[in-house]
Nucleic acid binder design. Structure first.
Length: 862
RNA sequence: GCCGGAGUGGUGGAAUGGUAGACACGCUUGACUCAAAAUCAAGUGCACUCCCGUGCGUGUCGGUUCGAGUCCGACCUCCGGCACCA
């Protein structure tokens, strides 16, 4: 065949990408653009240098929505950038003895190239690189705004510390056996002074405002509610007998207070040393505390860790009964939740029950459900019931007693009702090089001094070594030494950098506005925010999305922006997975069925394999790169296939076999339209307005207008897989029409075909934009489909003329009737009853009831 | 353990409470070809079948309804999140 006689996707895609680029088609909408705004945002990637299928899925979804909204007449902001700080660049620097900055820039270039290959309509004029000084300047400035307003604090926190590498490790760098990922040496928990954003101050608002995020997936809202973990209870004081020491405890079950048989303190409790100072038990207690703190803190925090404790020798006085209650130290009490001390009620708490059983402490029941007695009740009992052994509150339903006891305690001045959150303050310090430097200076005279605005940004120094040992910033000969901005004396710079989640907590603002001399300009923020549609992976449901919401609320409170929530509508796309076969005996993965024995159940060596569907990863080797698909089949095929693979919020299993189906379809689209461009009739509207069409012509127009309606609805509902199926149906219907009738050249046929070809180009535009523009040009249009208006379905044309009515007898389909769309109900009912086939299934019985569903079915009940 | 979500042909998947399996992959048959690829046409849930049909069928068991993949209850399995949170 001639080159022009086949679907040459390479030439088409290259040519159109060049034309889009030359025309600056995806430029940012101008400031005075009168169109309604639409801010579409994809979660920006870490620039690893390799685009993977998850990116393809995310950014293709985004491009469909952005192109659709543009064609619908919106001014669309569709930016892209790089979440470029982070460990991989630093690890690469250690490995290759280079610097993270050039390495990162190379990766960015490479990924930018791969994204361009997909033909995505990004507004590159708003590109952002979080590791560039013109970005992290403002990350620092925002930190100082937060600092000045009291949203930043400094305190101790436990970190993973590799004794060999002399550095802090992220949780995922600590192996399951508690060793360092890089050097295999032991990792310990170490306390370090760290910077925190005070997210807990916003816990209640972060929780409350979830109710307003009605366009978010319920799953994400639930996950955030659990993460914030609000619980209501009572915090009250216990006095230690024969001393003036007082402990405060928090409980959500103050109704069980009469069941307390011991108290338990966290080993880290600050009053513990005072409590045991002069007691004979002191040495035992100290030994126990050392034992607990030496153990792996992750293991200690797991629910199935064994419960251990030691008696302190001290007693507290029960505030209601006056009874002496022994005070223990227990490993299962955590210092960082509540007050670090608990009242233990073994009869009504599983943990306390396990502990009391082990150490032979009494377990009296004080809440008894109907039909049980305090003696017969199986313990521990967590549910509701009536108060027992509870003094003046005996017999009350426990929910009521909860309120009465709390009120009584408040009246006596013992304590008060409070709220506790699981959410912690956000530790933002990282003892790492490749992150945003924290703009703080420590001066012996002036203390902690923020870097003045005119000295920002605090730049990352380049005179550093990447050895894998210690924080490189601390090894720079120049970085730490600085004059105090207040008194001018020699001072020391903070060497910690920020968690990369800080960078991504405000990038959506920087996309909307990037003046040279400020973080953002208020007018542009007011124009674009909130983000109308945000799309990314479910793995960011809690951390990133909570941090970004927190930042937005603080910035609102500081008067810097006018919205309290950043993302109006959220969509979480599913992972892209691929099957692989694990051969346990050989300890290796097989990634292609052809590598296996003929039965598919064994390796060529005879070892059994287990089929698993897993996220694409280098370690398994089941990675399929979008670039390879684009080279073999084209970007349009890659884009359509990743959408067609399944519902976008669900996990999708990649199957190479499916790609050819999409490619065949696009080839059929090409064959339907491009070689027939000569049949195109620019004046098809006039011809169709006056022509009398036959049944086949009307049927094709009907299918076309039905497809327009389906596609619009599907795109708005993120039903991209069914949208493509609808386009396939349209092409399936059009192909025989074009083949059978177009050659004769009748004007009406050409007009029907012209409407189809032109509209098909527009409908295809968000999905396969290169081929769409090729068809658009071949039908005599200037420019790109991106600049054209989305088609509108004519309901009169889409309406079905004849209907198929299903006739059921007792709910089973027995016959089908073809009727005119306007046929009256009585006619249809009569026809259904008259049907011979229906009669034969009625066994001569008379209908008890006849149900008629307009336009759909008749059900005869006998 | 708690909180979410999902179970439909050989495969990916589709179905406002109203014809279950759209669309696609794969497979079968045919056309074209010396042949193959590509393309086109027909078929393809399972079982029985006088090839007209009939029965069964959406993880399991029950329920609501004229009618349930869809709604309700219980259970099973898988996936995700959280987990000594007092």
């Amino acid at each position: 065949m001639e080159p022009t006689q086949r679907y040459d996707f390479r030439a088409i895609e290259r040519a159109w990408q060049q034309r889009w680029h030359d025309a600056d088609l995806f430029a940012l909408p101008p400031v005075d653009d009168p169109r309604e705004k639409f801010y579409y945002l994809d979660m920006f990637p870490y620039p690893s240098g390799n685009l993977h299928m998850g990116h393809l899925r995310n950014y293709t979804i985004g491009d469909v929505v952005a192109r659709y909204q543009t064609m619908r007449g919106r001014a669309v902001l569709h930016p892209m950038g790089w979440d470029a700080f982070g460990l991989p660049a630093e690890n690469a620097a250690i490995k290759h003895h280079t610097h993270p900055d050039p390495w990162t820039r190379t990766c960015i270039q490479e990924m930018h190239r791969q994204l361009d290959m997909l033909g995505i309509s990004f507004n590159w004029d708003r590109e952002v690189n979080t590791s560039a000084p013109d970005y992290y300047h403002w990350t620092q400035w925002l930190f100082l705004q937060f600092y000045a307003a009291g949203h930043v604090t400094r305190s101790d926190a436990l970190v993973n510390w590799c004794t060999s590498c002399q550095t802090v490790l992220a949780n995922e760098q600590v192996m399951a056996d508690g060793t360092c990922e890089r050097c295999d040496q032991e990792v310990i928990k170490k306390r370090l002074e760290q910077w925190f954003y005070k997210t807990t101050d916003y816990a209640q608002r972060l929780l409350d405002d979830l109710d307003g995020l009605t366009e978010w997936p319920e799953q994400v809202r639930t996950m955030q509610r659990n993460w914030i973990g609000r619980s209501e209870g009572v915090e009250f004081a216990w006095h230690v007998a024969e001393s003036d020491i007082t402990f405060r405890v928090f409980t959500t079950r103050v109704d069980t207070v009469f069941g307390v048989t011991y108290m338990a303190l966290a080993p880290e409790h600050p009053l513990l040393e005072t409590l045991i100072a002069d007691r004979p038990e002191a040495d035992d207690v100290r030994a126990f505390v050392r034992h607990v703190l030496a153990a792996d803190q992750f293991a200690r925090a797991s629910a199935d860790a064994p419960k251990e404790g030691v008696f302190t020798g001290a007693y507290a006085t029960h505030p209601l009964t006056g009874a002496p209650v022994p005070i223990w130290v227990a490993n299962y009490v955590m210092m960082d939740y509540g007050t670090g001390a608990i009242m233990a009620v073994p009869a009504h708490d599983e943990r306390d029950f396990a502990f009391a059983t082990q150490y032979n402490l009494p377990i009296p029941a004080v809440i008894v459900p109907e039909g049980e007695t305090a003696e017969s009740l199986a313990l521990p009992y967590i549910g509701d019931g009536f108060q027992a052994n509870s003094g003046q509150f005996d017999g009350l339903p426990n929910q009521e007693a909860m309120v009465r006891i709390a009120e009584w305690m408040e009246g006596e001045g013992l304590g008060e009702r409070t709220v506790n959150f699981r959410l912690r303050d956000w530790c933002l310090s990282r003892q790492r090089y490749w992150g945003c430097p924290i703009p703080i200076i420590y001066c012996e005279q002036c203390g902690t001094v923020p870097v003045p605005d005119d000295q920002l940004p605090v730049r990352l120094p380049t005179d550093v070594e990447f050895t894998g040992h210690e924080n490189p910033l601390a090894t720079s000969p120049t970085f730490q030494h600085v004059d105090c901005p207040r008194c001018g004396a020699a001072a020391r710079r903070e060497t910690d950098t920020m968690d990369t989640f800080v960078d991504s907590s405000w990038y959506f603002l920087r996309f909307a506005s990037q003046p040279p001399d400020a973080a953002f300009a208020r007018a542009e923020i007011d124009r674009w925010l909130p983000v109308d549609q945000y799309v990314g992976g479910i793995e960011h449901a809690t951390m990133h999305l909570i941090y970004a919401r927190y930042f937005t609320k603080v910035l609102y409170d500081l008067g810097l922006i006018g919205v309290t929530e950043p993302f109006a509508r959220l969509f979480t796309q599913g992972m892209v997975t691929k099957a692989a076969w694990w051969a346990a005996a050989e300890k290796r993965w097989y990634t292609e069925p052809e590598q296996l024995a003929a039965d598919g159940l064994h390796t060529p060596g005879g070892a059994p394999v287990e089929r698993q569907v897993a996220k694409m990863s280098k370690s398994i080797g089941n990675v399929v790169a979008p670039e390879g698909i684009c080279e073999a089949y084209g970007a349009d095929t890659g884009r359509c296939y990743i959408l067609f693979i399944g519902p976008p919020n669900a996990e999708a299993e990649w199957q190479d076999d499916g790609v050819v189906g999409i490619h065949r379809w696009l080839t059929r689209v090409w064959r339907l339209t491009l070689p027939r461009a000569a049949s195109y009739l620019p004046a098809w509207r006039e011809v169709l307005a006056s022509a009398k069409l036959d049944a086949e012509q009307r049927a094709l127009r009907q299918k076309l207008h039905q497809t327009i309606a389906r596609l619009s609805a599907d795109i708005e509902d993120f039903g991209f897989n069914t949208a493509i199926a609808a386009l396939m149906e349209l092409v399936n219907a059009a192909a025989p029409f074009a083949a059978d009738r177009l050659a004769a050249g009748a004007e009406a046929d050409r007009a029907v075909f012209s409407e189809l070809a032109e509209t098909l180009a527009l409908l295809l535009s968000p999905f396969a934009p290169h081929l769409a523009d090729e068809i658009w040009a071949a039908t005599g249009h200037e420019g790109s489909t991106y600049q054209a208006a989305w088609p509108v379905s004519d309901p009169a044309l889409a309406r079905r003329e004849r209907l198929t009515i299903v006739v059921q007898v007792n709910g089973k389909v027995r016959d089908k009737l073809e009727v005119d769309a306007g046929a009256p109900e009585e006619t249809i009912r009569a026809a259904a009853l008259a049907s011979e086939r229906v009669q034969s299934f009625m066994d001569g019985k008379t209908p008890r009831k006849v149900v008629y569903v307009p336009g759909r079915l008749v059900n005869i009940v006998v």
